[in-house]
Design a protein around this nucleic acid. Structure first.
Lengths: 107, 107
DNA sequence: GCGATACTTAAGCGTATGCTTCACCAACCA
DNA sequence: TGGTTGGTGAAGCATACGCTTAAGTATCGC
């Protein structure tokens, strides 16, 4: 799923879809590539569960699946929270002293 | 940055680091690959700003950068919120339509 | 029916990614 | 001092990825 979000074009597609549903060619329009390529990207997004699509007539309409986005968000959030909580428990002061203060000369 | 999180091994490293700082070989231990490969993954994570490292003696110590995680989290969160808000508006709109139509024929 | 539209599928191709090996340097320590 | 530990860097290789072209299918509008 992070794999699916890794590509800039796919993120742009997600961005577009966050503003509302769109057809495949609408998604393709701002992207400088073939419809074929867009469909392939779409397949990745759909495979990751980030996007759901449905075909009516000859038009495939796509929309975001908020639940999948929430799952990705949660994964990051949990790890961050874990790390930040740990940071707090140990005391920011010690950590500052020990790990951050030497950044001045190294970086 | 999503690119960096796309790889399962790198996510495992992030997972490990969320539990506390670790040296390169500590990170490598649970992973079935060469130290060399781990260093390369580490470079990707560091390049994405997800991890900061510092070398003391011959040991490189790694820790998560919560801020970068927060950035990724925010990107997802914003898109999800946008989409969900739209969803709500649609719900409200439909509800309103429903209400109006009932008022229309009821009164 | 017939051309245009909106995809769909398969094949191929160049490049990026993930990994290994090998050689190497810099601490640490007995 | 010399061996071991911890990490670095470059080269090479197999596979995955992103994209294109080309050919095909199903629908829509006239």
């Amino acid at each position: 799923m992070f794999q699916a979000l890794a590509d800039p074009n796919r993120r742009q597609m997600v961005q577009r879809l966050s503003e509302g549903p769109a057809s495949v060619s609408e998604l393709a329009q701002p992207l400088q590539m073939t419809l074929s390529a867009v469909v392939q990207h779409l397949a990745v997004l759909e495979g990751a569960g980030l996007v759901r699509t449905q075909k009516i007539g000859r038009v495939r309409t796509c929309q975001l699946d908020a639940q999948a986005l929430r799952a990705a968000e949660r994964w990051i959030s949990e790890r961050r929270a874990l790390w930040e909580r740990r940071f707090d428990r140990l005391g920011a002061f010690l950590a500052e002293q020990d790990l951050v203060s030497k950044e001045g000369d190294g970086a």
